[in-house]
Design a binder for these strands. Structure first.
Lengths: 154, 154
DNA sequence: GCTGAAAGGAGAATGAG
DNA sequence: CTCATTCTCCTTTCAGC
């Protein structure tokens, strides 16, 4: 699948807002009839434009009220140290995002926890005890103003 | 809906991984039969534990290869200035996240764009021209190591 | 390529035990 | 929760534009 036309883009837009929409309603919203609309969706799934369908949960209802950005500097930058760190990141459910950034620190992570105590425990017991971290800098998130999974399509 | 039991938590876990799963398969994975499983899902939707169902897209395939954290300081902190900024944030599709943080800056935003030029344009033309920003600090994301919408359930 | 219709089947939704 | 039933909608195939 090489290029997306405006129909494909419209479909992606709708689905990343609400994937529980029925094929019939989706078709109407993008001005197609059911069959071609369905075919396009399948194509977008197969070609990987649509990675997956997920349910988004309410973190507050789940008792996860503390979020923070944690900047991390590594002790060393050899492959082994890196791998230990990345394995840790992958495995930890508290870490929602982790990116290597240009700047003073090696990585920025977005972390979620039930409360500051759990966050503290995570940072001290789990993260630092992995042995590969030189220093961290934690910025608590005071208020979440916007958080979306919708990419700017079109 | 007050408390979630282990069945509910299992359901949430599965659905935030893959919401395209069929009710039958979901029921089997959480060791329930179809009907009670379906009833629990509906309850979780109605009570707001499940906020929405969405499709996650591949940002690279969509030509969005540049991401950055942009830290922002406001000129003033009166309600009006704040509102102008938040309206701008809400309205801009480039801004995926925006949080008020404890620290030197007022807000941290996660921004996505096609390339550095588009990012630059966004920052200079759109963000700064809103007139309420004092200063910004941009950290390009070099490599995305982990990015998940799955919350630590249970 | 698209539309429209139509058939079949799968799965969602409901009600009773 | 299980069972059984209803019913909606998905999915495919066909025709024709």
């Amino acid at each position: 699948m090489n290029e997306l036309d405006s129909f494909d883009l419209s479909i992606l837009k709708v689905l990343q807002e609400d994937s529980s929409i029925h094929m019939q309603a989706l078709a109407e919203r993008v001005n197609l009839s059911k069959t071609p609309c369905w075919r396009r969706v399948k194509k977008l799934e197969e070609s990987g434009y649509i990675r997956k369908y997920v349910a988004l949960l309410d973190h507050r209802k789940l008792g996860l009220s503390v979020m923070a950005y944690v900047q991390v500097s590594m002790k060393d930058h050899d492959l082994n140290t890196l791998q230990v760190f990345l394995d840790f990141v992958e495995q930890s459910p508290y870490i929602l995002d982790c990116h290597a950034t240009a700047g003073n620190f090696d990585y920025v992570m977005k972390v979620i926890a039930a409360d500051t105590e759990e966050l503290e425990n995570f940072l001290m017991r789990e993260l630092l005890s992995s042995g590969v971290i030189q220093s961290t800098n934690t910025n608590l998130i005071l208020r979440q103003k916007k958080s979306t999974t919708e990419l700017p399509v079109k």
